[in-house]
Design a protein around this nucleic acid. Structure first.
Lengths: 212, 212
DNA sequence: TAGATTGTTAATCGATTAACAATC
DNA sequence: TAGATTGTTAATCGATTAACAATC
């Protein structure tokens, strides 16, 4: 890629939201949009939008604005959605199965290729067309299929050991739903912690705060 | 409560993580901890911890540090975990059911009292001991039980209408998993958007970024 | 051309870090 | 008391916003 050097995490985190809004606009048949109008729709400043986009290149045209379809696809490219990453789900409990069935991995830059669990009873059960495999087969599966991403929907206590095993097996990125606070121990490992409980507690605080 | 005035959202978002780490330390039998040691365990600066905590009061003691158990429970109070909010889940699909079964609402400041869906076929089905109710009964249920929180695990297209209806029924806070970008239209409404897809795309970017 | 809107530099604002006096 | 560590003020850093010249 081109400019993408030390893009701040704040900017990166806004990209998927731009992508979403631009997709909607495109579906609605809107062809061009100015940073001003987009800013009003998204609830941020026009300046911020222009700053953010210019981290990656000049996608707009003075006096015109941005072409919706083109900008949408540019951001998709920046995010890497066109180069799908092979992913496995580890932990086929309620959450793991819901993620497998519910998430549209294909349009988010991922390709789900396996689901694992440590319960014998689950083995073979089909989830989203994939058989749940016993965790015993993890090593072999990874050597043969080299997944790059592991989605962890496992109990807290297994998280550390399993993540270490997975790093050994070549996993580069974790989407971590376990309550364990996974940290990127090596510089070439990416961790996206999704602490649903934390989000819930934040909501708790903010709702109580209303009446103070 | 006392000092909690214009506490920045950055600080609030860190509270659940402090709460989690302090809970662990307490379970491990650790009685006291200094900001320095906590900072090392959590991967942030001691200065930040002291700044954050002092938004709410002076919980430490010079020369000693913080009492783990006491600080843990103080943060629980600040978050409002001791004053549970009544919550309903709207949308009993994969995700809604997984959230109902998987999340420990009680220890996060919530009390789950109802689950709704618009599919006749689901009505009566038990999830986490609660019968799935048809959405037709939403008004009556809310008038009788006055839930304060709605958890939205519904398709994008129903989100706007439903959220408006729910606000009319007295809902004060939303935990929104739908792909619709819910925004707090009124000042006394709190929205916590959990865009799992956005988190996934951020992971995509960051993993691809490793090899650039 | 005149009007609109970008890309980009400069100013502001807020959050994080450093420093240190207060005090247990 | 001496040592440790807080609470808090001041300095720094980074992110957001404002301004405007460039240009379609």
């Amino acid at each position: 890629m081109n400019k993408r050097d030390n893009i701040s995490i704040s900017v990166i985190k806004r990209l998927p939201r731009y992508y979403r809004f631009l997709g909607d606009l495109h579906v609605k048949g809107i062809v061009r949009i100015s940073s001003k109008e987009l800013s009003e729709r998204m609830g941020l400043t026009a300046s911020q939008i222009r700053q953010d986009l210019n981290c990656f290149g000049g996608f707009g045209q003075q006096g015109y604005g941005y072409n919706v379809e083109q900008l949408h696809s540019e951001i998709g490219n920046i995010l890497g959605l066109t180069r799908p990453l092979k992913a496995i789900i580890v932990g086929a409990g309620n959450l793991g199965r819901a993620l497998a069935s519910h998430m549209d991995f294909e349009s988010r830059g991922f390709h789900l290729i396996g689901i694992f669990d440590n319960r014998e009873s689950m083995a073979g059960q089909l989830v989203k067309g994939l058989p749940v495999r016993h965790i015993y087969g993890l090593d072999e599966f990874c050597r043969e299929n080299s997944p790059e991403i592991a989605i962890l929907s496992i109990p807290r206590d297994s998280a550390r050991t399993l993540s270490e095993q997975l790093i050994g097996l070549g996993i580069k990125g974790f989407w971590n739903f376990s309550h364990y606070d996974l940290r990127p121990v090596f510089p070439d490992i990416v961790v996206e912690n999704v602490h649903l409980s934390d989000s819930l507690m934040t909501l708790c605080y903010r709702v109580h705060d209303l009446s103070d």
